[in-house]
Design a protein around this nucleic acid. Structure first.
Lengths: 359, 359
DNA sequence: GTGAAAGCGCTAACAG
DNA sequence: CTGTTAGCGCTTTCAC
């Protein structure tokens, strides 16, 4: 384990000052001769500039942080792959954290990143807006992916509404209606989102076209925008019993799905707001001897490789997970200054075999 | 964006020297009074020690690197979750890289980690042993997970053998037979491996018991130990046409599976050496109108959530991905000195519905 | 038990 | 165009 050469070694060996070496290596100005000499010597010594020194000097760690709820959720894995692809092409490291959808763990991880002076972050947020204030205040450039931090429930009046109150999100279709024309206003926080509203709307219309009237929604934490879109798409008198949520784990997703099927055997279709929920729906349906799509139609958010493996193959609302990650990384990397821009990517309904006409 | 308090600020505010603050915060000796005062002041100032300064001083970055081929392969996602869980409980950051199974990208990522002075690494290796020499020489503590780096093919004689030559691995059942008694000798490099040999053997025996004689093996890069085990389990005259490999991508896995089924319609069972290969096998079989398990039995390496979603649900050789990651992280973290130990975890055959008697 | 001082490797002024 | 210098925030001898 020989010790690595430092910039000083290179400077001495090349007979120049350390500043010159630094300049040459970071593309600064230098005479062709000097440049070449430095480069040669550096190569001979197998010199690799230490990120440690640079980081301390610049008071910031390069690269970026990435926070996702769970990598075994294939969608987040796709997202992560996108981020990694972009980071790799930029030669930047990415520090990964998995939050399990738990605001506390998320906060801890943010603290860890702060300690590391990682000042760029891509996050699929679990905590509410308030819990993100510290990070922003500390000067972190954060780009949210897949969803925005929930806005804490303002006050509880209607018990039914309160049940999903903590799932209401920033750009919900709340009281002051959005400016006309756009299907969704660009959110205040930098983000890379899929067009959930359009995706859900398309799915609901598709099911409607198949004759379905009792359509259920199976969601999880962080699916606030999707529920809103669902409510909007099904129209005014939403049957609240048909809107259920898991807590994020596979078990709770299964419990929610199973409970839904059993309590409302009259439903004829369900929209699962994520692939873990879709998985749970398939499992629960099978367990209850409900045939898909004969007894119940299913459309699942997220296109994942195994959607095609099911029989019948699942009809899905695909969102470009990899692209979303890549774009998010670009945004966070490019935002030389502070606040990054936002982008919204399209979703696509991929019709396979899990939806049929209402019986 | 206020600037963070430094150790100096704390020292001044507490009326002590920076050394004392450092000692107190890292559990060194100090009088109770001093200790409390420092702690109080630090809390008031919301002081968070900067990892930057410490890292430079200690010439090493804390935490660990993690290199996997592909996060969308659920097994690697599970592995990663295990690593992250351990790292989080230790408060250490993990720098993630995805290699796509490409030795070049792997080498680049290793270079990046070296530049960051990350000196602890958990890797599912893609490159051969030689390409790992630089990392080891640089003083990195690396723990391999899931498999060991391939040992370059010594020389090519038999064309058939040469075809899989680069897949031969360290602890293969090569010429000098292993010492008697143990099912596998502990490998030379620190690692966390599943007992592939036992897993494959169990699967093959299970299929044999069902009457199958023409059993195929569908592998990918890095599955050298699994092929060896397969060859060993099926016995001497191995039908080489029944042993095929994909290159790691989903497409190539599909191509390999499809080609296998078409060229050898006489096969009655296949062992897929990984979940991506299993997925490909299911897809290819369906495309060719082969019913599972009526026309062909399938057992897949890796237990993944969607294995249960298939119809019929897939019989699998489960390996504890999450545990493997957790253990690997423990090993790399604990190895205060240099070389870590190795551990081998058991596999389990989970019988579901994808295997039937030979027709 | 505690403080002063010396850097870790690098970049960014600032002179020459 | 290039060398010298001053730290970035922290740990760690080394005296006191």
């Amino acid at each position: 384990m020989e010790k690595r050469a430092t910039i000083k070694d290179v400077a001495e060996a090349a007979g120049v000052g350390v500043a010159t070496v630094s300049r040459v290596l970071s593309g600064g100005s230098a005479s062709p001769q000097t440049r070449e000499r430095v480069l040669t010597v550096a190569a001979q010594l197998d010199y690799r500039p230490s990120a440690l020194g640079r980081n301390l000097r610049q008071r910031r760690t390069g690269g970026m942080g990435l926070l996702v709820p769970d990598l075994t959720d294939t969608f987040y894995a796709q997202l992560a792959e996108g981020v990694l692809a972009c980071a790799r092409s930029a030669g930047e490291p990415v520090v990964l954290g998995s939050t399990a959808g738990d605001p506390e763990q998320e906060a801890e991880l943010i603290g860890m990143l702060l300690e590391q002076s990682v000042d760029r972050l891509i996050a699929v947020p679990s905590g509410e807006e308030d819990s993100w204030a510290p990070a922003l205040r500390a000067g972190m450039t954060v780009v949210f992916a897949d969803r925005l931090p929930a806005r804490p429930a303002p006050e509880e009046e209607d018990p039914a509404a309160a049940a999903v109150g903590d799932l209401m999100l920033l750009d919900g279709i709340a009281a002051p209606p959005p400016a006309p024309g756009r299907s969704a206003e660009p959110p205040a926080l930098p983000s890379v989102l899929a067009d959930d509203r359009a995706g859900i709307r398309t799915a609901v219309r598709y099911l409607r076209g198949l004759g379905h009237r009792r359509i259920a929604f199976l969601g999880g934490p962080g699916h606030g925008r999707r529920v809103s879109a669902f409510r909007e798409a099904v129209g005014s008198p939403v049957d609240e019993e048909l809107v259920v949520f898991g807590t994020g784990s596979r078990d709770s997703a299964y419990a929610a799905a199973s409970g839904l099927f059993q309590s409302r055997p009259d439903l004829s279709a369900v929209v699962a707001a994520g692939n873990v929920l879709g998985e749970a729906a398939v499992l629960a349906a099978r367990e209850l001897d409900l045939r898909v799509p004969r007894d119940v139609s299913l459309v699942m958010y997220d296109d994942v490789p195994w959607a095609e493996l099911c029989s019948p193959p699942l009809t899905v609302i695909a969102q470009p997970g990899r692209d979303m990650g890549y774009r998010a990384a670009e945004l966070v990397l490019r935002s030389g200054g502070r606040r990054a821009r936002s982008v919204m990517l399209p979703t696509e309904l991929i019709v396979r075999g899990s939806c049929g006409p209402r019986r």
